[in-house]
Simulated scan of single mutants.
Amino acid sequence: MGKSIESLEEFYRHKLTNVSEGLRKDNDQFNIFSIEENSINGISSPAYIRRNFYKIMLFKGKNIFHYGDKSIPIEGDTLLFFDPKTPYTYDPVEPGSKGWFCVFKQEFFHTSLRINLSDLPLFSIIDHPLFKLKPGEAKEIQSIFEKIIKTIDKDYIYKYELIKSYVSELIYLAMQLHPSEEVFHHPDASSRITAVFSELLERQFPIESKTQRFELRSPKVIADQLSIHVNSLNRAVKNATGLTTTEHIFEKLTAEAKALLKHTNWNIAEISYVLGFEDQAHFNKFFKKQTNISPSIFRQV
């Protein structure tokens, strides 16, 4: 089954072209990038999935950021926080947008912070962790990012300890600010959520071995993967396709069942297992309800 969470290593390998070789060799838990350089290099907006790392961004420009099932417009200097629990993306970066973002794992701070990053309100979808900065605040935040950039290029044995102190300063400064409360439902939100739902569903197929199993087989489980409420998922899929989330799952499940019955020599108990059913009886009941024929008879036709 394909992954629904992007790792920091995959982020480096597939999304970015300007990762320093020095970082790959001596530290795989932290790096910092220029938004302007990524835009020039044609780096696209991130896929709407979860990551296994944290991100702090200073964005200078106008854009719309999407957290879970919410969309938040920004303009000017904005400080943003992203966490591993919530899928996110943003619209394509407009020409002239500038700023920086750093990425790191919780492990990067294990010996420094006395608290878990996941406990901070900054890394919580509930608090919409976007901060519109006043000129003085923007200048102070920018200076910290510039210190990180200057430090990461140094050949200094304690440079990552120094960087940790700068990132900690970003975090604690932000906790004194008031997050932006301007949230709206983007007209393409249903299409975006539906696209991710479809991708998660499709990634699980085809089933090619008896050790593989169809696990994301309910709207609730998929909604949990996207860190959105199941009602939001169901509403988005219904609005975008006219079919319910369950109807899409059952349609894909039935198609895969037919393929396995016709094109493998697995017995029906094995097929019911890989498709995620508790036992063969449940699979038989499901298949007959969907096709008006039992799995054994379908296989013989």
Rank of each mutant, 00 (worst) to 15 (best):
Q204F: 04
R213G: 08
L170I: 04
L130D: 01
Q142R: 13
K154P: 02
I149Y: 09
E140G: 00
S165I: 11
L133M: 03
F108P: 03
K210M: 13
V183A: 10
F145Q: 04
E140A: 14
D188W: 11
D188I: 12
I126P: 00
I163K: 02
D119A: 05
D153V: 14
T111A: 08
P135K: 05
E137S: 05
S118C: 01
D119R: 01
P187Y: 15
S168N: 09
I193Q: 06
A174V: 07
A138M: 07
I207N: 04
Q204W: 03
E107T: 03
Q142F: 07
A138K: 01
H178C: 13
L173W: 06
S112D: 06
R203K: 15
H186N: 05
L170T: 04
T111E: 13
A174Y: 03
S190A: 15
F145K: 05
T194V: 10
S118I: 09
H128C: 08
K132A: 14
D155A: 11
N116Q: 09
Y172N: 06
I141Y: 00
Y156Q: 14
S124W: 00
S112E: 09
F197M: 08
L170K: 03
Y160V: 05
E182W: 11
I163H: 02
S112A: 13
F214I: 10
L133W: 00
E169Y: 08
H186I: 03
E146D: 13
I149Q: 07
R203W: 11
Y160F: 15
F145V: 04
L201R: 06
S180T: 09
H110L: 04
I144C: 03
Y158H: 09
E146Y: 03
L162M: 09
I157W: 06
S112V: 08
F108I: 01
V196A: 14
L122C: 00
P206I: 13
L120E: 00
E107C: 02
F104S: 01
T151C: 12
D153S: 15
L133V: 01
F109W: 02
L173S: 10
G136L: 14
Q176R: 15
Y160T: 07
K164N: 04
K139T: 07
H186L: 08
H186D: 08
S198H: 08
E215S: 12
D119Y: 01
Y172I: 08
S191V: 06
I152N: 04
Q106Y: 01
S143E: 15
E182T: 14
L130T: 06
D155Q: 12
L216M: 09
I115D: 03
R217M: 12
I125W: 05
A195V: 06
F197H: 02
